[in-house]
Nucleic acid binder design. Structure first.
Lengths: 232, 232
DNA sequence: AAAATGGCTTGATAAATATCAAGCATCAAT
DNA sequence: ATTGATGCTTGATATTTATCAAGCCATTTT
């Protein structure tokens, strides 16, 4: 594996403070892979043989049941995914596919677990990361159960804006139908929800989003750090 | 704190393999409290000063937003809750209240974190526990997003049955309105869903549940370990 | 350039779910 | 025993959301 990738990975919170030789032990068995869009990297139910790190592009985590499918989240560089399954040596609960041309690094789960068992710093970092992931899913669950689809969309837009440092104009980073699925609605419903946000100063044309009446939108969305702040 | 409680707690997976002195360090600052029903133990947004262990009774974890409330889960003896917030030294994302007369042990978060930093076995156990919690929430999310309320109820009953070792007759362990909230529906909707399951051999009268046509119910519910098996 | 593809939107309709209101049952307190 | 409180159920209705079908638009393929 090229050193440039290694240093990218090294900079991730979970790998930052661990001993060099342990980091090398994890990297040794790892390898880079390049994928075109729409490639299924992981299928739910399989055993978690690899931990994955997205280096470039983007990866959708989704779940299926009884012929239905839903987008659980989208993973962007540089982050890991399928950490919990790796640590528990369990089956993947979600499938993963590339959304665009993507570079992904695969690290053998057994190596990750082995190092986890002997490197306390790594173990600590993994816990912090897992706790973060857990809290993210809890927030998502609250969003789903406590809000209507319009409120979810409104808050999504405000979170997007925050991610873009408060810019008035932004670009959607995923397809609308994926966004709809992630927000727990149909594409048609999203389309109508977007129109319903016009009176609140939201204009979405294609992928470009504009929020002209921030205050009005906030008044509708009623964002709270307990749901909408990923760092809280 | 009485030794009997200590040994109960010691038997929990996260405390089982740790060094005695570290276990004692966590227990030292801990104390037992007895609560009547309907007492709010924790309010979301507060800082997580204590990790909690339910010794007897039951505790509801719930969340609120904009005047609405939803049951996230119910914790029964003997288990911990609010582990992630404790470890991350973060704010509680959920509130907690006793559902019945309950005995709860409070362990200072700072002590838990301190031991976590020096006891590798404890750290490992915490990771396993957290990964488990994470996966439980993911499963719950899949249940919510991929299934209708009728399907969620059907699967809930099958999970309950499994927890009761496959008995044909069981008792509901929570109030119906709480169950409704947990399943993401209104009490009225649950009432109707129960009726709608009659043709599938489900009879619910008061708190007693009977499943006479297991196969039919399974055919409707289509349970999968990827959502319905807590150990998977 | 023409055709085809795929995603997005819109309208019409259907299904799922929530709300409101009333009545009933259970259980606890007086 | 009576009252009151609370949760459950039922019916009527409203709202939300999904589905189906068609057309539009942009992009890619031929």
């Amino acid at each position: 594996m090229p050193d440039s990738y290694k240093s990218d990975i090294r900079s991730l919170p979970i790998f930052q403070h661990m001993a060099d030789d342990n980091f090398d032990a994890i990297m040794r068995g790892g390898y880079v892979q390049n994928f075109p869009p729409q490639v299924e990297l992981i299928t739910e139910g399989e055993t978690a043989d690899f931990m994955h790190v997205v280096i470039s592009g983007s990866v959708e985590l989704f779940a299926t049941w009884n012929g239905r499918e839903t987008t659980m989240s989208v993973v962007r560089p540089i982050s890991t995914f399928i950490l919990a399954a790796t640590i528990k040596d369990a089956h993947y609960l979600m499938s993963a596919r590339t959304l665009e041309k993507s570079r992904v690094i695969l690290l053998p789960s057994s190596d990750v677990r082995a190092v986890f068992d002997r490197d306390h710093d790594f173990a600590r970092a993994v816990v912090t990361e897992l706790a973060q992931c857990y809290r993210a899913v809890v927030k998502n669950s609250k969003d789903l159960k406590l809000r209507t689809s319009l409120e979810r969309l409104a808050n999504y837009l405000l979170r997007l804006q925050r991610r873009m440092n408060g810019a008035e104009k932004m670009e959607l980073t995923i397809e609308k139908r994926k966004l709809a699925s992630q927000l727990g609605m149909t594409p048609e419903n999203l389309s109508r929800a977007i129109k319903a946000l016009r009176p609140y100063g939201v204009t979405i044309e294609g992928t470009s989003v504009q929020i002209t009446k921030q205050d009005d939108l906030v008044q509708l969305a009623k964002p709270t750090p307990l749901i909408d702040d990923p760092t809280f």
